[in-house]
Design a protein around this nucleic acid. Sequence first.
DNA 1: TTTAAAAAACCGACTGGTTGGTATGTTTTT
DNA 2: AAAAACATACCAACCAGTCGGTTTTTTAAA
Lengths: 203, 203
Amino acid sequence: MKNQQRSEETRTRILAAALDCFARYGYAASGVAEICQAAGVSKGAFYHHFAGKQALFQSLLGDWLTDLEQTLTRAASTANSVPERLTNMARMARLIFHSNSPQTSFLLEFWSQASRDAAVRQAIIAPYRRFQRYFADLIQQGVDEGTLQPVNALAAAQTLISLTSGLFLQHLVDPQGADWAQATEDAIHLLLHGLQKPEGGAP
Amino acid sequence: MKNQQRSEETRTRILAAALDCFARYGYAASGVAEICQAAGVSKGAFYHHFAGKQALFQSLLGDWLTDLEQTLTRAASTANSVPERLTNMARMARLIFHSNSPQTSFLLEFWSQASRDAAVRQAIIAPYRRFQRYFADLIQQGVDEGTLQPVNALAAAQTLISLTSGLFLQHLVDPQGADWAQATEDAIHLLLHGLQKPEGGAP
DNA sequence: TTTAAAAAACCGACTGGTTGGTATGTTTTT
DNA sequence: AAAAACATACCAACCAGTCGGTTTTTTAAA
């Protein structure tokens, strides 16, 4: 086998094993030796590919975030009006929730570390800002085309992200507690149509 | 000093020190010895009051949750219509966010552990269910009194909790990233009034 | 009230096991 | 032959929890 291929495969195996271990036992409880054994490689290989446990962790985070970004932007491209697009993205939640359910529980570790480690925080904040801008643009577009109320686009985007983050968080903590995919659809629907009954009639 | 007083004070000191350490360095990185030093007590005292590190952790969680529950229910009791009450509670977010900001970052550890430890999960889920029922009742009341749309109360309550959880999560990860108290008010307002512009006129 | 014993609270040195990381050697590719 | 990739034994540091002993408080008998 070519060297480059072999190397890349080992790296991938380590990443996959680490993802599994972190999700199963948590970051702190997952030893490097344990990860190596799960990946079927030696410690030498590990430290040849990664500067340390933390570096591996951040690498994992980066990969997941770029994946999410790609998935989301793809889903938004197939619809006409902005409300339709948002509904589509909400429906896609089912896919995200179900596909790699156990693996994603390591995201809690990310958030946890981000609150203390500046490097991790930056790694999370940067794509977050991109998401926010993306949704803000989308919402502004909806306002311009007249399908959305004349709201503050940035604030509305933040609300949307907070809502989905919260749903995802609860899904991670208590996967069996509810049909979170359905809950996401319901929540987006509720956000779109409003909870309060309008007092006066429309013009 | 009386024995009971002394004992209780030591226990409180340990809890406070642990809260500080967990928030600052995380659960795993905070050693029992470190906590003891910060609290000004010995290991003997520690293990006299708590069965172990994990027990201390859960004790901390319990205290925080009961505090939150009390604060919230108090805030909901002073208003007339249901939308007003919800707005009031949103305004109270500023208080929650600002009061003990750094301390609360240990909640991320809770969520993280809850996804793996059944005991921690139960400790979080039980009050969560109470919150959900409480808000569902509130929303149902709003539907009955005609101030809210005829929505599914339980689903709407879940949405409300997810939204606030998400906001709190982001506040913990990136406290300086935004005015999260304001964002909470905005978000609740948005949820109440809806994002999408109604197509037809009202009756 | 005094006192002695029992109980509760507290102390701190010690340990057995774990772990991230390293140093050195070996295999495979270039 | 050089370099990249990988393997393995090893270590120093750390850490949750223990254990025998000490101080303080309470109890209760004298």
